[in-house]
Amino acid sequence: MNLKRIGAPVALLAAAAISLTACAANEGSTPSTTTAAATNFSGTLNGIGSSAQGAAQTVWAAGFQQANPKATVNYDPQGSGAGRKSFISGAADFAGSDAALKTEELASTFAGCAANSKGIDLPVYISPIAIAYNVDGVKDLKLDAATIAGIFSGKITTWDDAKIKDQNSGASLPSAPITVVHRSDDSGTTQNFTEYLAANAPDVWTAPASQTFPFQVGDAAKGTSGVADATKNAKNSITYIDESGSAGLSIAQLKVGTNYEKISADGAAAVVAASPIASGRETNDLAIQIDRKDTTKGAWPLVLVSYVIACQEYKDAAKADLVKGYVNYIISSDAQKAAAEQAGSAPLSSDLADKVSKAVSSIK
């Protein structure tokens, strides 16, 4: 097993992954698909992509390889943009991406796919994005979208700014400068973060949604682990990060409608469940148009949906079979629950899992 640049102890995760039953803790939010039985899959899959998806990929690869000892899954969490580029070029058999293929990417020639075949987006991982911070003496920080936009665009520069103080009565906010930490790489987490701010604070966040951070402010770091480490090592700092990488940092409450909500995988899943499949794409492409303005009580609209991007038709039929086997395992109840326990993600709903299963069955 070769799981590049993922630090979780693989043996322990493998044991955890295979010991899970198909009974989910929350039956209303878990897929109806059960664990894929071992079918003696063999061969090697190489995936590149989302660092947010990295912890889940560790669990999934361990469980799949335990059931199929002749199969090897390599996953290198270089970032969503690197994953899509590698998949298009044929350097990866699949991509992990926190953003669906862009229109211009869909116009590309996909080197590993059969002639005239394109990549399709298959949702496999749902996770809230945390606004994580490192400020001594400050707990239960509350922020609305406009204030987050002001901080990350460089318009709000100190922790005792009135816009922060007004939402945090009684908090011991220092007069210190805010150190903003953002992603340096082409990131699906950045895409989702900037989509949220562009939708909810357009007067403050004046840049369009983008997979590259649009403002010259603060410090840049690569990948989920990079921004986590940079924030932990800098006092009075703040970042946006997939919740799976936020251990050791405080997480702000987010104003949703008239309420301040605590980060919640269930709240993130509820937003995704209420959001439509994006229009104008291939039949089996399941890119989701997330409703960033969902104000339902308990909702967490600062959410990412992470995809496995695969060919609709591969040049190599054996590779297609292995990809289908692996993705079917990923969307199984066992694998989704294992990822939820290790990465804090939300299991796919039964409806979405069924849609992904149907799309996977079309791969050839």
Rank of each mutant, 00 (worst) to 15 (best):
Ser333Trp: 01
Val135Asn: 08
Thr157Met: 00
Val180Gly: 07
Ala338Lys: 00
Thr224Tyr: 10
Gln167Pro: 05
Val271His: 01
Ala114Pro: 01
Ala209Thr: 06
Gly248Phe: 09
Gly47Tyr: 03
Ala38Thr: 10
Glu243Ala: 12
Thr33Gly: 06
Lys319Gly: 07
Leu122Val: 04
Tyr329His: 13
Gly170Arg: 07
Gly28Tyr: 04
Val217Ser: 04
Ser332Trp: 01
Gln289Asp: 13
Ala359Val: 09
Asp242Leu: 00
Lys85Val: 14
Gly245Cys: 05
Ala220Met: 06
Phe41His: 15
Ser153Pro: 03
Gly28Pro: 02
Ile288Leu: 10
Val204Asn: 03
Ser187Glu: 09
Thr239Gly: 11
Ala17Met: 02
Ile120Pro: 05
Ala234Ser: 15
Pro128His: 09
Ala92Trp: 05
Lys262Ser: 15
Asp285Glu: 08
Ala268Ile: 09
Asn116Trp: 00
Lys85Ala: 15
Trp159Ala: 07
Gln336Gly: 07
Ala15Lys: 06
Ser97Ala: 15
Leu197Trp: 11
Gln312Gly: 01
Tyr326Pro: 02
Asp334His: 00
Gly218Ala: 10
Lys355His: 05
Gly79Gln: 11
Lys85Gly: 05
Asp285Lys: 08
Ala38Pro: 10
Ala62Asp: 07
Tyr75Ile: 00
Ser175Glu: 04
Val204Arg: 05
Leu141Asn: 08
Glu313Gln: 14
Thr34Met: 04
Tyr196Leu: 04
Asp294Lys: 04
Ser80Glu: 07
Ser97Pro: 01
Ile251Asn: 12
Ala252Tyr: 06
Asp98Glu: 15
Ala359His: 12
Ser210Lys: 09
Ala15Gly: 08
Ala62His: 08
Val204Ser: 05
Ala132His: 08
Ala8Phe: 12
Val10Ser: 12
Trp60Gln: 13
Lys255Asp: 06
